[in-house]
Design a protein around this nucleic acid. Sequence first.
DNA 1: TGATTTCAATTACGCATGTTATCTTGCGCA
DNA 2: TGCGCAAGATAACATGCGTAATTGAAATCA
Lengths: 252, 252
Amino acid sequence: MASLVRKLEQFVRLSPVDHAILNRASTERVRHFGPRVDIVREGEKPKDVHLILSGWACRYKQLEDGRRQVVAFFLPGDICDVNVFILREMDHSIGTITQVAVADLSREFFDQVAAGHPRIVTAFWWETLVNAAIQREWTMNLGQRTALERMAHLLCEIWLRLRLSGLTKGDSCDFPLTQGDLADATGLSKVHVNRTLQELRAAGLIVLKGKTLAVPNLDRLMEAGLFNPNYLHMDHEGRQLDAASITDTAVG
Amino acid sequence: MASLVRKLEQFVRLSPVDHAILNRASTERVRHFGPRVDIVREGEKPKDVHLILSGWACRYKQLEDGRRQVVAFFLPGDICDVNVFILREMDHSIGTITQVAVADLSREFFDQVAAGHPRIVTAFWWETLVNAAIQREWTMNLGQRTALERMAHLLCEIWLRLRLSGLTKGDSCDFPLTQGDLADATGLSKVHVNRTLQELRAAGLIVLKGKTLAVPNLDRLMEAGLFNPNYLHMDHEGRQLDAASITDTAVG
DNA sequence: TGATTTCAATTACGCATGTTATCTTGCGCA
DNA sequence: TGCGCAAGATAACATGCGTAATTGAAATCA
């Protein structure tokens, strides 16, 4: 729950009671999954909302002939879909990338929040709106950007989201995605993902080896990806994010 | 408001009071726009939520070099973004396609709904979740489908959404999108949109002339677009949509 | 420790789609 | 009624990216 609270508090200041509520929700009903495993499958009835406590996961859709599109990555602190259970069936699947710990949030939890915890409601709306904005940006990414821009853009996004949750150290971070994952997320072939990564490496924009990514110069990577961070809505009401607020935020 | 209520009631039965609330919200503060005009611009502070009363509009994003991506189409009865005003600035623009009438919904309106009208809250969550699902499907469309599939898929979606709001007559409907609009939405060039439409016409899947689209055989068009309507979540709690429920729903 | 599988790298070749350009058709407006 | 411009159609040519196939390097596991 550390990552979730840290993230939400970038946006709304939560009360001690709010903290307690979130803390409780994210320690009850925790499940663990291995890597490369489905948490939820398309067609199932949505039952709970999933909060990623640790590990990476993704949301994906698949065509009958096997073509697969990753439509979102979930990092620690991400909520899969606030209030999904009002829908009859899932229109996509959620699968793990690495080992993952998930907290299941019930309908009752959301009812309770809606009834008496307006700041959490606002924070969840913010989460929902940002996720929608990310999905739009992915549409833009796939529709208009070249392979190189697209890849750079995706890496910038992941980088900033990790940094917001305190999951980067210096200029590097864990990066468990395979080239196949990146291909499914960018709509490129694996071969072309490989070519594109080589190009980014050759330009000195990334250092990607094993399961670690380093970004020596974020500004240059952002330029290459035509990346404008506005859609992440990482600031609020005049509170700007700077290095200090990112690294110093105390977390209950 | 007719289209909005008709649509929402596919999902939740609203009380007479709910009707009155929605009716009031959509008759106060109505604005009219000409075709090809911006309603909201990227970077602005979101002030109200927009409900499209009549006409077609779109949500789009643009890169500095002019590349433009339409990330959503708005049809009558669509709400642009429930609760956007909690964000500091818009990450995209909203522009009209045709003449458009818009009702502006205030923060106070949403507070009032949240406080005392749980069915409307649920209905708005449904609207939000469906819009998110549509955006995901667009990501899939751009990332995995060929030009022909992509175009067929888009046309199926628009067709079904129009039908849900009672805006089709028989097998045809108004269709004000230019090939340029379709290009911006599908991520294809205008030339290739033209080629693709020719191909759909030659296959007898669509009849598109002037500003009118006819779909002689929806099932075949859906096959061509690998279209699975599940993501539109047009049914709920065992209530299936059939021809009757679509055409006979009484609207206040 | 070797066997097995997954992931990354690389090459050769083909095609779906983009680009540029020109021409035609349709349509709003004086 | 016809001018003027936007939208649609068509053709010739260019290319970014996909496909298929092979090899090598890591990770996983018996």
